[in-house]
């Protein structure tokens, strides 16, 4: 029984690492990071070979990629979308804006940094970071995803 369970846990962890689906959220960024993020999907970088897929619905996603300094008008949507993602989930902050506010830090309509609102697991600094840096950040996120507790079919806890 013990061995079976451990095999199951290993399988689930491995599957998670092989199938991370992303949801991308722009919290008032300038597009720079967003386009470089999109570039990761395209022929030169092609993240699909790692099993990564960009999803249109947060309910399908495992990794939330946030860019932008979090403006007042996007903050509520950010929290809703984070809550809609099923566990286990990790958050990657893409670019300097979600980390510190970057050049917008003293703006009255910017309420960031991001970690005020949701827990951030990986930071990818840069303005904007290059696609390879974003990929490295996602790779880190995948490692963190694997360490989250494993549950059985339908979400019942096993470990």
């Amino acid at each position: 029984m013990e061995a079976k369970l451990s095999f199951f846990v290993h399988l689930v962890r491995y599957a998670r690492g092989r199938s991370p689906w992303l949801f991308h959220l722009n919290c008032g960024g300038c597009n720079g990071c967003d386009i470089e993020f999109l570039a990761c999907l395209t022929p030169r970088y092609d993240v699909e070979q790692l099993g990564i897929r960009l999803e249109g619905s947060p309910r399908h996603a495992d990794i939330l990629c946030v860019s932008g300094p979090v403006t007042r008008n996007t903050q509520a949507a950010l929290q809703t979308i984070y809550a809609q993602m099923p566990a286990p989930k990790v958050v990657v902050a893409i670019g300097s804006c979600p980390a510190s506010g970057n050049v917008f830090a003293d703006s009255p309509s910017v309420v960031g940094p991001l970690e005020k609102f949701i827990p951030v697991d990986v930071y990818v600094p840069g303005c904007p970071p290059r696609p390879n840096a974003i990929l490295e950040g996602i790779a880190n996120a995948i490692e963190q995803l694997k360490t989250k507790p494993v549950t059985g079919i339908g979400g019942k806890s096993h470990a």
């Binding site: 932008g68 917008f104 003293d106």
Partner: peptide, 28 residues
């Protein structure tokens, strides 16, 4: 949703700093 009040921030920085700021109006 993207309103960052860039014009307002620009009034509190010098003209050289503002070059870096306006670079970030749009990333494309």
């Amino acid at each position: 949703f993207n309103f960052r009040a860039i014009e307002l921030i620009a009034q509190s920085r010098n003209i050289i700093q503002n070059i870096a700021l306006f670079e970030r109006v749009c990333g494309i």
